[in-house]
Design a protein around this nucleic acid. Structure first.
Lengths: 341, 341
DNA sequence: CTGAAAGCGCTTACAG
DNA sequence: CTGAAAGCGCTTACAG
């Protein structure tokens, strides 16, 4: 049978309270006693029953998610997933709070984190804005013993415990690998539609995309990046005018949001003139465009997975447990019309 | 505060034991009493604390995994993942047993299931062999109240609770969608290398592949399917001779195991003559071939995810809980050399 | 510095 | 048909 605290107490000749003190690294135990207990723990091969511990502690994990109030489909979906997690969380002694902040606003994010810190939650997940002030704040959170997970957008080099999101460089490289093979034997120009170069994930995708094209497909000519600020109308205009100016555009990589405008521009073209198109995020309009054949491939990050993973990691960190790395890796899903879920 | 059994007992004016009987649908409660308790449960919005219940029950879930003793990389990896899960399971009152059986052998599988049934486990996961006897056995397992999950290979139309594996039809379609786009503007023949048409997953992949090629890329000519029985040597010979006979082979879809032989044949060719190649399962040799540029894309099922998902589902079913469908969908991973994990 | 006792939310014999 | 009491594995005041 699995050994329990009782077995350890008996074997070490101490009381339950002392076992508990040693188990949880609490002070007030003579080192001789501590050693006796530790000896018993390891010789019996004790592993703590976390569920029982939490029950006894009457512990409810309180976690806060800070999400930008962006109104694009992806962020809406992300907020929905957090809401779903909140609904499920009751059964698992987890209390999730949500805070929304204006997007891309480091000051607002820092202010929100400050507020949350005062509530002393067990953990925080937030969509990072890449700024020194956010890094400094993250450091303070960690010093206060709060588990910190960045969600969707990372803060590399900061003190955060974990990043729940995709590798955007790899996503860009993958898009290039696909595009290069799609256009192999055809040639032509490649257009890139981005949201904003101020966004770290967009920059990283672009970087990955360009580096692979340059290295593996040098014959493909790349047009200057168009920035549509994740705005569908602007995206549509930019794409239409680029297509008008360069009739030899053979491929388009849309690495940001606002795909509805892109799709409209594509639909306006003659079918046989349409370029190969790779876009991000499987929104309902992207899904429709895939089925219709307007978009060839969609790279997707699963918001549900990201939220569940963030939660699992927060819980593990709050318990001081380790995570299963392979399980928490957020993958880049690639969808063609043929493998739509 | 979350209501507990005590609150219900007080509110309904009964004892804890009676609350428990109603909660667990056990007999021996007058219907008037039962109604009073149910009234209290719903009016207080009670949700049971599963962790506490399991602690009280002293319950250990016992699950059995039945795995074929195939020696290809994928099956070896699958068995490794089950072993990892066993190592982790101690902490969660889960006991996992493993049984290996000869592959593709319905009788052996049925015999193994029979043995396992006598041990009355809470649940069973097995790599299905598609046969009526296995279906009948599955039915008996369910009648005995055992949770049943098929792993990697499904048994459609049977009584199993869940399938933890990919949609192989969709995988074949996806391969075709990629291949069609890779060869668009080039033309040529497409060769298909399979393990055995007796394997349901191979048949389904082929079916998906052929249907999309026929519908969307009618200009691509498809050579008769080669069956290499998942044997690397045979695969190498078949591919080499096909390439010799048909110098215009522009694409190869390898939908089974035994890719080492295929890779050898590819390496022997002049680089500029090499076809586009799509294969299955990210084994170490496939990974190397991707990096080397011998293989263009690998469709992969993550054995670790499949095992963890199977376990989660078995646990939920054993507890009579529902599962998060989106979380348990096993995705078809697509790897280029650019997004290798 | 250490221990006895009560309690977390549930279940389980046992008694009536 | 119903209930009082003990117990699952841990933690937490409180007392000494």
């Amino acid at each position: 049978m699995k050994p329990t605290v009782h077995d350890i107490a008996r074997s070490a000749g101490v009381s339950l309270a002392t076992v508990d003190r040693v188990l949880n690294g609490r002070p007030g135990v003579r080192s001789i006693t501590r050693e006796r207990v530790e000896e018993a723990i390891s010789s019996l091969g004790y592993v703590r029953d976390v569920a029982a511990a939490n029950l006894a502690k009457g512990r409810t994990y309180s976690f806060t998610f800070i999400l930008p109030d962006n109104d694009n489909s992806f962020m809406i979906g992300l907020r929905d997933e957090v809401r779903l997690a909140m609904a499920r969380s009751g059964a698992e002694r987890v209390l999730i709070r949500t805070l929304t902040v204006p997007p891309f606003d480091a000051e607002a994010l820092v202010a929100a984190l400050e507020t949350v810190l005062e509530e002393q939650p067990a953990g925080i997940a937030f969509v990072a804005v890449d700024a020194p002030s956010v890094r400094a704040m993250t450091q303070r959170l960690k010093e206060a013993g709060v588990a910190v997970v960045t969600l969707v957008s990372d803060l590399p080099g900061s003190a955060r415990d974990h990043y729940a999101g995709i590798d955007n460089q790899a996503a860009g490289r993958t898009a290039a690998g696909l595009m290069g093979r799609f256009l192999d034997g055809k040639g032509g120009r490649v257009a890139v539609l981005a949201g904003s170069m101020l966004l770290r994930d967009h920059r990283e995708r672009l970087e990955g995309f360009l580096s692979v094209l340059a290295e593996d497909y040098p014959k493909l000519a790349i047009l200057p990046v168009m920035e549509a600020r994740d705005d569908a109308t602007l995206a549509g205009e930019l794409v239409s005018s680029a297509l008008a100016r360069h009739p030899d555009i053979a491929g388009i990589y849309s690495l940001g949001a606002g795909n509805r405008g892109l799709i409209r521009a594509l639909r306006d073209m003659k079918a046989e003139r349409r370029p190969r198109v790779i876009a991000h995020e499987l929104t309902s309009s992207a899904r429709a465009a895939l089925s219709e054949g307007l978009i060839d491939a969609v790279l997707n990050q699963d918001a549900g997975h990201e939220v569940r993973s963030a939660l699992r990691v927060l819980k593990s960190k709050a318990d001081g447990l380790s995570v299963i790395a392979a399980q928490e890796r957020i993958r880049i899903d690639i969808f063609l019309k043929d493998n739509l879920p």
